[in-house]
Design a protein around this nucleic acid. Structure first.
Lengths: 197, 197
DNA sequence: ACCTCAATGTATGCACTGATCACAATGTAG
DNA sequence: CTACATTGTGATCAGTGCATACATTGAGGT
């Protein structure tokens, strides 16, 4: 007999934790609910109590991803200087760092397919993340280090550039050794392009 | 009895064509080799003669995607003016247009998981695509409309920005109505950031 | 014209998956 | 202490990717 109690006690978080590990090691497509249940030590049907479908599990993973990304960017700002260039540099490095450290997760977060209701919660969390960058750029505007204009229109190109760079590194298009000073060049272009007229 | 001949004659391209349709309609995860075989009218094992695994089929799809993307960008350059700003604008619109028209395909093309050997062929085709942009920017340098320096280092930020913008629109982070003039802003930032000193 | 033989499609079976259902065990509120 | 909601179990179902052995076809060499 198993000495494990009938109720696991923390199945949901255990599943998420294990899932993220397999996600990192073997990719999203190699993620099986049944194997997950096996590894955690519960019956194959047990996960359905916490995630009504596999997609729901993936959505939950993506959501935690956004939360941790937001956290990473937030902490990157703590040690940074007040100048916009420094803050942008710190945020960019945090973003790309998160991307390479969690490639499969990032893929999931910005995957096309999300259940319509999950898109709601996801959209909210994703906005919390983009708000960080908006705030960062708004502050730059206030300091006179970023050109004026509607915040969203100023910020969008910045976000797009960072997002694209992260995507290129993650998908392997960018040779890993080029990634480092490549980021420097990207940040330089962003700064010049967003500088006050 | 079926009047269909024993040999399909064009199974490989038929499979690819049907696969892309399902990809567009129901996403990559809803793509089943067996269903594909059913729709095309062959036995479930037939596809394995042309694609040794499902991933191989996906890789082939991604490859055609890169080819068509390259083609779209190429034709966008034909009608464009010679000024760098115009050419970049045309290429950017072609890229983003392709992205929104083939969201799931783009996801596939830049997906993290590719069989190592497929990465080889894919990498070659992807490079053919990036070479287009390199050429575009190199021409801009020659015309004195883009700052000097190592071509790759100048081009990378441009590619990253375009790629990121396409990714944002495709993944739905960007509201569709914002996509249009959003591109204008992005291009403007790129141009300013890449202008000669 | 014949005859190999590689290419292509078929039939069958295996291990596995996600999902659903009725049921069992457990905690909890009244 | 007892009703009840929560959580885990066991069994089952349709569907999948893949491998293996076999059937059909067409093309090239003699």
């Amino acid at each position: 007999m198993t000495n494990r109690p009938y109720h696991h006690g923390d199945l949901r978080v255990a599943l998420l934790a294990r899932a993220e590990e397999t996600l990192r090691e073997k990719g999203a497509s190699a993620l099986s609910l049944r194997e997950l249940a096996r590894e955690v030590g519960v019956s194959p049907a047990a996960p359905s109590r916490h995630f009504k479908s596999k997609q729901a599990l993936l959505d939950a993973l993506a959501l935690t991803g956004f939360e941790r990304l937001a956290e990473a960017i937030a902490t990157s700002q703590e040690g940074a200087d007040e100048a916009f260039a420094d803050r942008l540099d710190a945020a960019a490095r945090a973003y790309v760092g998160f991307a390479v450290a969690n490639a499969a997760l990032l893929d999931l977060m910005f995957s096309v397919k999300h259940s319509p209701q999950a898109s709601e919660a996801l959209g909210a969390t994703a906005h919390r993340w983009s708000d960080q960058l908006l705030e960062l750029i708004g502050e730059g505007q206030r300091r006179g280090e970023v050109r004026g204009g509607p915040l969203e229109r100023i910020a969008l190109p910045v976000v797009a550039a960072l997002h694209g760079y992260a995507g290129l590194t993650v998908s392997g298009v960018l040779p890993p050794e080029a990634a480092e000073h490549g980021l420097d060049d990207l940040i330089a272009v962003i700064l010049r392009g967003s500088a006050p007229q």
